[in-house]
Design a protein around this nucleic acid. Sequence first.
DNA 1: GTCTGTTTGTCAAGAAATTCACAAAGATTC
DNA 2: GAATCTTTGTGAATTTCTTGACAAACAGAC
Lengths: 210, 210
Amino acid sequence: MQKASISESVIRRLPRYYRFLSQLEEAGIERTSSRELGVQLGLTASQIRQDLNCFGEFGQQGYGYNVSALRRQLELIIGLNKNRPAVIVGAGNLGKVIAANIDFGAYGFRLAGIFDIDRRICGSEIAGFTVQHMDTLEEFCNETEPLIAVLCIPQEAAQETADRLKDLGVKGFWNFSHCDLDADRSQVQVENVHLGDSLMTLSYRMPKDD
Amino acid sequence: MQKASISESVIRRLPRYYRFLSQLEEAGIERTSSRELGVQLGLTASQIRQDLNCFGEFGQQGYGYNVSALRRQLELIIGLNKNRPAVIVGAGNLGKVIAANIDFGAYGFRLAGIFDIDRRICGSEIAGFTVQHMDTLEEFCNETEPLIAVLCIPQEAAQETADRLKDLGVKGFWNFSHCDLDADRSQVQVENVHLGDSLMTLSYRMPKDD
DNA sequence: GTCTGTTTGTCAAGAAATTCACAAAGATTC
DNA sequence: GAATCTTTGTGAATTTCTTGACAAACAGAC
């Protein structure tokens, strides 16, 4: 499907393409072109063609791209059609919000369980799941084989927990802890989410008025 | 302070440098070097020196960098020492979590108010703030002059609300709506946070086992 | 105080990403 | 159905980003 190894820059743009095409499809628009997409997304038409061509030839000369077909292709490329089990580790404020508000199904996953170390939280219900204690993590993983883990735990516990989950077969980490996980990228994929970093870049870009 | 216009790539790395230096400082480590930082952060020493030199000469040959001094410099560069008013718009699940969990002070801002369109939510208290109705937004902005707004509202309302806030003098948007805001970057800065995009890149990087 | 070792700041080379440009192919018009 | 218009896919040019290399400067040892 893909021509060579895809650069990080391209990968980061794929979700935007997918989102925008979904919007077009919902709006009932049947066809589009790299020029049109470029204008809407603030990119050059050339870049969009270049990006898409990493994965195949989805357009037609003189016509452009069929919105639904291209959206579907991106869905397959990104893997959104799959249904891979995911586990949330850490049922504090953040864990709760993610459990309740992220539509894992829309991203090719399904939430399969929520865990926490605090026995006072265990047993309570979040998003239809009973919070389980970390002691039962091994059992759960052997049974359910989660492909990814969402880490919503304090910085101190993150690396250790990630290692433990890695040994249990988890292949991807969506990491909300305030640290960068250390991992051999050939074995495990890590997506760090640092809201603080994001806010800092905004802070940097604010007028300095010195 | 800065030598020329700073590239996006460099800006994105600054928060990581800052975070890591804060950790070193807390651990009581006094000095470090570009080589050491590079090993820890998974970057080349050359890149770190290049990045830092965009803003000045903070190191000393034969010695390296003083951790506290460099952290302090980055603090100033990013603007974390400031105290600029911020407003949260949208007091649903996400708005609540952000209000309660983001330490705005640590990023050079201070939370000054929370707004929502839903009168049933207005009047309730979140993180010490009484949720105000959007009708009173103009009054609030004239008084408090928030520099940034955190948008935690549905996609449909995002662009309109952003325009309204822009007219009220807001210069930056931390946008959690599921859309990319359209804005003249010379007047207004937008930092889009798309958790869905983040999860999609993880989905893409998962084994395909076809 | 001299000598050795380390590390910076910077320039240049190399690599990567983006944009340009255009032939080829098909759509659309008349 | 011929002529014109549009748009893709792609190789090359350009720009941007990253890495390599080294002189200059200082630290630390003796």
